[in-house]
Design a protein around this nucleic acid. Sequence first.
DNA 1: CCGTATCCTATCGGATACTG
DNA 2: CAGTATCCGATAGGATACGG
Lengths: 107, 107
Amino acid sequence: MKNLPEVPAERALRVIGGRWKLHVLWHLLEHRRRLSELQRLIPGITQKVLIQQLRELEAHGVVSREVFAEVPPRVEYEATPLGLTLRPLLESLCSWGRQHAQARGAR
Amino acid sequence: MKNLPEVPAERALRVIGGRWKLHVLWHLLEHRRRLSELQRLIPGITQKVLIQQLRELEAHGVVSREVFAEVPPRVEYEATPLGLTLRPLLESLCSWGRQHAQARGAR
DNA sequence: CCGTATCCTATCGGATACTG
DNA sequence: CAGTATCCGATAGGATACGG
């Protein structure tokens, strides 16, 4: 898998910058969740893409994956300690986005 | 030009999420600059792409463009008031990226 | 339930050449 | 100096089908 940029801000963007990563992170920052749960919580995402996004978040150290040897199979994802540090950043993004929408409407 | 997402955090990412936008913004947050100046400050970017990125930043209301009727032509770009509000966000990104690099090395 | 394998499309951004 | 016009390759991600 390709390495992250060295410029810090770009690295941050690369980690959170996928099509659905904010959604995934948001839900995992609340608490650990199963795959099927995430898929239900994020309407419009396909299973394949959801797993892709999770794998990337995992590769970047912000999400971890735990497999339970059960029948039927159960897999849970959760934010790592490093992942948890994203919360204030996501909140800043959110608040800036709101401010922008306020200032510019739908554009 | 396509409208921004309504989910605030995604909207923010869309505005700053181009390949060179962080670089461009960074330089324009210092002070207004000419096109040629930006191109010199951002090695590796082509003129076409630089202009593309600037046009998008303009369309999203964070950068403005001023043309001076001179010979040779002079055009200057600067951060709008809305664009200036990005500074703390960019700093947060930068600091999280550093923290991430610290925790994970080159990965 | 969870995951992989194909296939396919749209979009982005890089290379290059040309114009007022 | 600033900008436009083409062309083009890489890639992200969506649709769908199948497998443990």
